[in-house]
C-alpha cells in the first residue's frame, strides 16, 4: 500500500469525519477537568474514575432499568455528581488551591476508586447496550463512494457540542458563572466582594463531575465499560487541557480538535507509531513555545 493509495477524496472525507468524532469525545472529557483546575486549582487525577461511574450509571439506568437513553445520560451524570458531593466534603475541599498536593491526594483517591470498582463489579468488561446501531451513508454523488458515519458517534458529537455551548454560556453569561470566574481570578478579593466561595466551589465541583460523568457514560457506550475505563479519558483530558491552556474553555475545545484531528490523520496516513510520535512531539513543541498552552494565560 503506497501513501498515494490513501490520498483519495473519499478516504480523506472519511478521516475528517473520524477526526471530528474523536475530537468531540476529547472535548467532552476535557471540560470537567479544565473547570476544576480553572476554578479551584485542583488537578483531578481521579477524573477518569468519575467518568467510569458515569458509565456504570448509564449501564444500570439504560441497560438494566430501560430508562430512555436521552434521559438516562443526564440522569446518570446528575446521580454521580450528587453522590460525589461526599468526596467533595471529605477529600476534594482539602485540596482547593493546592495544585501539587491535589495531584498526589487524588491519585490515591483514583486508586481507591478503581479497586473498589473491581470489588463491586469485578474485572470483566461489559457493554452498555447501544442506543443507536445504524450507520449514516452520504456523499456518494460527490465522492463516488458513500461516507459512513455511525449514529452513535453523531450522538456523541451533538452532545459534546451542546455541552460545550451550554457550559460556555453558563460560565460567561450567568450570575453563577460570574461568581466562578471571580473566584478563579482571586479568591480573597472575590470573598471580600461578598461571593461565598465555598458555595461557588461546590457548584463548580457538581458541574465538573456532571460533565465528566456524562462524558464517561458516552465513552463507555461507544467503547466498553470496565474498571479501567478512566485511564484513557484522564490521559486525553490532561493532554487536551495542557495543550489548550489549563482552565480555558475555548482552549479545551481547541486542544480537543488538534489532538483528535492530528491523531486521526497521522494514524490513517502514516500508522500508529508515527501518529503517537508526532502527536506528542507537537504537544511538547507547543509547550516549549507557550508553556501556558494555546489559549491559556501566563501566571
Amino acid at each position: 500500500m503506497s501513501f498515494t493509495d490513501l490520498l483519495t477524496p473519499v478516504l480523506m472525507g472519511q478521516v475528517l469525519l473520524d477526526g471530528m468524532s474523536i475530537s468531540s469525545i476529547y472535548i467532552l472529557i476535557a471540560l470537567g477537568f479544565t473547570l476544576l483546575f480553572g476554578i479551584m486549582r485542583v488537578v483531578n487525577f481521579a477524573h477518569g474514575e468519575f467518568a467510569m461511574l458515569g458509565g456504570w450509571g448509564l449501564y444500570y439506568l439504560y441497560g438494566q432499568f430501560n430508562v430512555p437513553f436521552l434521559l438516562a445520560v443526564p440522569l446518570a451524570g446528575a446521580i454521580v455528581a450528587v453522590c460525589s458531593l461526599v468526596f467533595e466534603q471529605f477529600v476534594f475541599r482539602f485540596f482547593y488551591q493546592k495544585m501539587f498536593q491535589s495531584m498526589i491526594g487524588l491519585l490515591g483517591l483514583s486508586t481507591a476508586m478503581i479497586y473498589t470498582a473491581v470489588i463491586i463489579w469485578d474485572a470483566y468488561e461489559r457493554q452498555i447496550p447501544p442506543a443507536f446501531t445504524s450507520t449514516l451513508e452520504f456523499g456518494e454523488s460527490i465522492f463516488g463512494e458513500s461516507l459512513l458515519l455511525p449514529t452513535d458517534r453523531v450522538v456523541v458529537f451533538l452532545v459534546s457540542m451542546a455541552t460545550l455551548a451550554a457550559f460556555y454560556f453558563l460560565i460567561m453569561h450567568t450570575r453563577m458563572g460570574l461568581g466562578m470566574r471571580a473566584a478563579a481570578q482571586d479568591v480573597e478579593v472575590a470573598e471580600a466582594m461578598g461571593i461565598r466561595t465555598r458555595t461557588v466551589y461546590r457548584q463548580a465541583f457538581l458541574l465538573a463531575i456532571f460533565m465528566t460523568a456524562v462524558a464517561g457514560a458516552l465513552y463507555g457506550q461507544i467503547y466498553f465499560l470496565s474498571y479501567e475505563l478512566g485511564s484513557q479519558p484522564l490521559l486525553k483530558a490532561f493532554i487536551v487541557v495542557i495543550l489548550g491552556g489549563m482552565g480555558s474553555i475555548p482552549g479545551a475545545a481547541l486542544g480537543g480538535v488538534i489532538l483528535g484531528m492530528s491523531e486521526t490523520f497521522l494514524a490513517t496516513l502514516f500508522g500508529a507509531a508515527v501518529s503517537n510520535f508526532v502527536s506528542f512531539g507537537v504537544v511538547i513543541l507547543i509547550l516549549i513555545i507557550r508553556p501556558w498552552g494555546l489559549l491559556g494565560k501566563p501566571e
Binding site: Y223, E263, T264, N276
Partner: peptide
C-alpha cells in the same frame, strides 16, 4: 499502544 480504544484509523488503512 496498549490501552488504545480507537482503532478506526488503523482499520481504515
Amino acid at each position: 499502544e496498549r490501552g488504545t480504544r480507537e482503532f478506526t484509523p488503523l482499520l481504515r488503512r
